[in-house]
Design a protein around this nucleic acid. Structure first.
Length: 493
RNA sequence: GGUCGCGUGGCCGAGCGGCUAGGCAGAGGUCUGCAAAACCUCGUACAGCGGUUCAAAUCCGCUCGCGACCUCCA
C-alpha cells in the first residue's frame, strides 16, 4: 500500500515522512517494563500506543520486526539497591522468580488489552555478554573511563568530539553541569556529574552480578537497550520508542552509548508517548492517586463509580492522541463506554445491510471520502481521535440506513462493501478492539430470537402486559430490547 | 530553581492562520401501544491581557494555572 505516513520525530521535533531504511521493512525497538512489581496502568497506555503504531505499520503492509525488552536488572534506587534485589527480598524470592512473576503478570495484562506480542522480547540478564562487549567498544573509542572496577561514560569528552549529547532532550552540557553542582554527593567516582555508569562493580551483598574484565558487577542501567537494539535490529534501525519520561536521561544516554560504540545514530525516528493522568494529576502511589488495571475492570476503587471493561479502556485511550496527556476520569470513561457500544452496535447493523443497487448510488462518493479521510487521519502521525470522528460519521449513515431515514437504494452494494472493509480493518486490525459480548454468541442469538418472537406474538395480540414483562425482565439482566422499523433487535446494556 | 509541553463549550477530546471535528451529557422534534434505541435540529468554546495580520483558538510577548523531565519511572 502506498500511503504517505507522517511520523512525529522527537529527535527533530517535527513531523516527517516515514521512510524506512529498507523498503517494505521496519525495525522498531520499544523500551519495555522493569519487572519488579505489578504493571502500572500508565505502562499499559504506553504499550497500547505502540501496539497501535505496530498494527498500523502492519496494516500498511510493512514487515515489522518489533523488539520490546524486559528489564530484569540494573535499575538502581536512590540508596543504591537494585530494584530486582529489593523486590526479591520483599517477597522472599530469587531475583529471577521476581522477574518471572511480574513478567507473567505483564504478559497477561497485555493479552487482556488485546495487544500483539512483539516479535522479540529480550531480557537484560540474557544479554550480559553483549553489554560487556559494548562497554569494551566504548572504552576502545575513548568515551569511557574506569574507576575502582566501575566503568563510566565520559559525557564531556563525547559532547566535545561529537556535539551530540543533549540533542534529543534539548539539554546543554554546561547546564547539566550547573544544575548538578548542588548535589555532587554520591558521585565522587564520576569525573563529571552528567557522566553515567555503564558497568558497576557490585558490593559483596549484591545478589545479581556477573564476571567482567573490570570487576564482578552488573551493567549500567541504560546499556541494555543499546546492546539489545543493536543485536536484533542493527546499528541503525528505523523507530525507537518509549514513554516521554524516558527521554532523559535514559534515551539520551542510550544514543550516547550507541554513537560512542559504533559512531552512528541508533534510530532514525524517535517516538515518545505521553503520560496517563488521573483526575488531572500524574498517577502516583504515594498520593493515593492511582488505580490498577484490575481495580479499573472491577470498579473496586474510590476513583470510579463502576467497572470498565478492557476494551472500553482501550477505546478510551484511543480517543486521545498518543502524544497528548490522557486524563482518566470516571465521567470520561462513562462517555467512552457509551461511544464504544454505539460503534459496535452500528458495526453489527452494518453486517445486516444490503442494497439493490450494484454501484453508483448517491451516497457512495461521500462515503468513499469519509473512509479515505479516516486513513488520512491515521497517516497523520497515527491520529486516532480524528479517525474515530470519521468512524462515527459512518455510524450515523449506517443507523440512518438501518432505520429508514436514508433509503437503502441511496447506497450501493459496492458502497456497503467498502464501509464493511474499512470499518473492519480500522476497528479490529488497527485499533485492536474486539467485541466483548461475543462469547457464546450463537446460543444467545438463538435464545434471544425465540424470546423476541414470543414477545412479538404478544404484541400482535396487544398483550402489553406480557410484552412489557419480557422487555423489563430482560432489562434487569442487562439485555436491551430495541424495537425498530425493520423489526426488533437486542444488545447488552 | 533550570528545560520542555499544555490550558478548547457541562465533561472528555481533535484542530494549530480563513473552511462542520467527534463522543458523552442537555433542549426540542420524528418514530413507537408506551418506553428504549435510532435519526433530525439546537445551544453554550477556544485561561487572561496586550501585539502581529485583511483575517488568530491557531503566530509573538507577558500574567495566571496545570503537567512532564532535571533522581528510578511508560
Amino acid at each position: 500500500m502506498n500511503r504517505n505516513l507522517l511520523v512525529y520525530n522527537s529527535l527533530t521535533r517535527q513531523k516527517e515522512v516515514f521512510k524506512p531504511i529498507t523498503d517494505g521493512y521496519v525495525g522498531m525497538y520499544v523500551c519495555g517494563p522493569t519487572v519488579y512489581s505489578d504493571v502500572h496502568l500508565g505502562n499499559c497506555r504506553t504499550f497500547m500506543s505502540f501496539d497501535l503504531i505496530y498494527r498500523y505499520l502492519l496494516f500498511l503492509g510493512y514487515k515489522v520486526r518489533y523488539v520490546r525488552n524486559i528489564t530484569d536488572v540494573g535499575h538502581l534506587l536512590d540508596d543504591g539497591e537494585d530494584r530486582m534485589s529489593k523486590g526479591s527480598r520483599a517477597d522472599d524470592l530469587e531475583p529471577m522468580e521476581v522477574a518471572q512473576k511480574y513478567t507473567n503478570g505483564f504478559h497477561e495484562m497485555m493479552h487482556i488489552f488485546n495487544t500483539l506480542a512483539p516479535g522479540i522480547e529480550p531480557r537484560a540478564t540474557g544479554h550480559i555478554i553483549e553489554q560487556i562487549e559494548m562497554v569494551q567498544d566504548i572504552l576502545d573509542k575513548g568515551y569511557g573511563y574506569i574507576k575502582n572496577g566501575s566503568v563510566y561514560f565520559d559525557t564531556l569528552n563525547f559532547a566535545e568530539k561529537t556535539g551530540e549529547y543533549g540533542r534529543l532532550s534539548g539539554r546543554v552540557i554546561e547546564e547539566l553541569l550547573s544544575e548538578s553542582r548542588d548535589n555532587l554527593k554520591n558521585q565522587d567516582e564520576k569525573n563529571h556529574p552528567s557522566d553515567f555508569a555503564i558497568w558497576m562493580k557490585a558490593s559483596d551483598e549484591h545478589i545479581m552480578k556477573w564476571n567482567s574484565p573490570w570487576s564482578v558487577g552488573f551493567p549500567g542501567w541504560h546499556l541494555e537497550c543499546s546492546a539489545m537494539s543493536t543485536k536484533y535490529l542493527g546499528k541503525t534501525f528505523d523507530i525507537h520508542g518509549g514513554g516521554n519520561d524516558l527521554k532523559f536521561p535514559h534515551h539520551e544516554n542510550e544514543i550516547a552509548q550507541n554513537i560512542g560504540a559504533c559512531g552512528c545514530q541508533p534510530a532514525n525516528y524517535w517516538i515518545h508517548t505521553n503520560m496517563l493522568l488521573m483526575n488531572g494529576k500524574k498517577m502516583s502511589k504515594s498520593d493515593g492517586n492511582t488505580i490498577s488495571p484490575s481495580e479499573l475492570f472491577t470498579g473496586d476503587s474510590e476513583h470510579v463509580t463502576k467497572g470498565y471493561s478492557p476494551m472500553v479502556v482501550r477505546f478510551f485511550m484511543l480517543q486521545s492522541h498518543y502524544r497528548s496527556p490522557n486524563d482518566l476520569t470516571d465521567d470520561a470513561l462513562q462517555a467512552a463506554e457509551k461511544g464504544f457500544k454505539r460503534l459496535f452496535e452500528a458495526y453489527k447493523s452494518l453486517e445486516q445491510l444490503d442494497s439493490p443497487e450494484v454501484k453508483g448510488a448517491p451516497l457512495d462518493l461521500s462515503i468513499e471520502q469519509t473512509i479515505e479521510g479516516a486513513f488520512l487521519n491515521m497517516d497523520d502521525d497515527f491520529n486516532t481521535p480524528k479517525t474515530i470522528a470519521r468512524l462515527f460519521e459512518l455510524v450515523t449513515i449506517i443507523n440512518s440506513l438501518k432505520d429508514g431515514q436514508l433509503k437503502i437504494n441511496e447506497i450501493s452494494k459496492d458502497g456497503i462493501a467498502k464501509i464493511k472493509t474499512a470499518m473492519k480493518a480500522i476497528i479490529f486490525n488497527i485499533f485492536g478492539l474486539k467485541d466483548e459480548s461475543e462469547s457464546s454468541a450463537g446460543t444467545m442469538d438463538g435464545l434471544m430470537n425465540l424470546v423476541i418472537e414470543l414477545r412479538q406474538l404478544a404484541r400482535v395480540n396487544k398483550d402489553w402486559t406480557t410484552s412489557d414483562k419480557i422487555r423489563d425482565a430482560l432489562g434487569e439482566i442487562n439485555i436491551q430490547i430495541k424495537d425498530g422499523k425493520e423489526g426488533t433487535s437486542w444488545s447488552y446494556k
